[in-house]
């Protein structure tokens, strides 16, 4: 069985990578493959890379509020492409209210700064395994 592939990306002009790199390392240590798209991504580019790399989960690392506006566009583009790749949002700026809101909008999981590693790994496995 091939390992779970996760895309890790930052959105827009959010240049903070501490969280994204930490999660990338965490997932690699848990045996997953990480496609690290790094900084400066718009939703269309993320969809393109996720197709090319056939990732199982799209992970967005956020240290700015740009995700609040880009997430809907990303979900819409995925839908238009007929893709069911789950989107996970994580980062310091994600509050409990934001997390509930994101789940309502169709995000697979949302992690704030208090998320523990085991929780993130378990959720990734669950989301990747639940795909058809």
């Amino acid at each position: 069985m091939r390992p779970i592939r996760v895309l890790i990306a930052m959105l827009g002009l959010d240049q903070h990578e501490v969280g994204g790199l930490a999660v990338a390392r965490l997932l690699r240590d848990a045996g997953m493959e990480v496609v690290y798209a790094g900084r400066f991504n718009l939703p269309a580019g993320i969809v393109k890379v996720s197709l090319e790399e056939s990732v199982d989960v799209i992970g967005l690392s956020c240290h700015s509020w740009e995700y609040l506006y880009y997430v809907d566009e990303l979900l819409q583009l995925l839908h238009e492409q007929g893709l069911d790749t789950p989107v996970v949002v994580g980062g310091s700026v994600v509050t409990p209210a934001d997390a509930r809101n994101l789940l309502d909008r169709g995000v697979g999981a949302a992690f704030g700064p208090t998320a523990v590693p085991a929780e993130i790994i378990a959720k990734m496995i669950q989301l990747a395994g639940g795909r058809t």
Binding site: G12, L13, F40, S64, E66, Y69, Y70
Partner: peptide, 22 residues
């Protein structure tokens, strides 16, 4: 803000959700 720090004007397409927030 992040566009300014990157020498980008506020009407740059990448700046749209980041103008003045940081």
């Amino acid at each position: 803000d992040t566009p300014t720090m990157g020498c980008l004007d506020p009407d740059h397409p990448f700046a749209v959700h980041a103008v003045g927030t940081q």
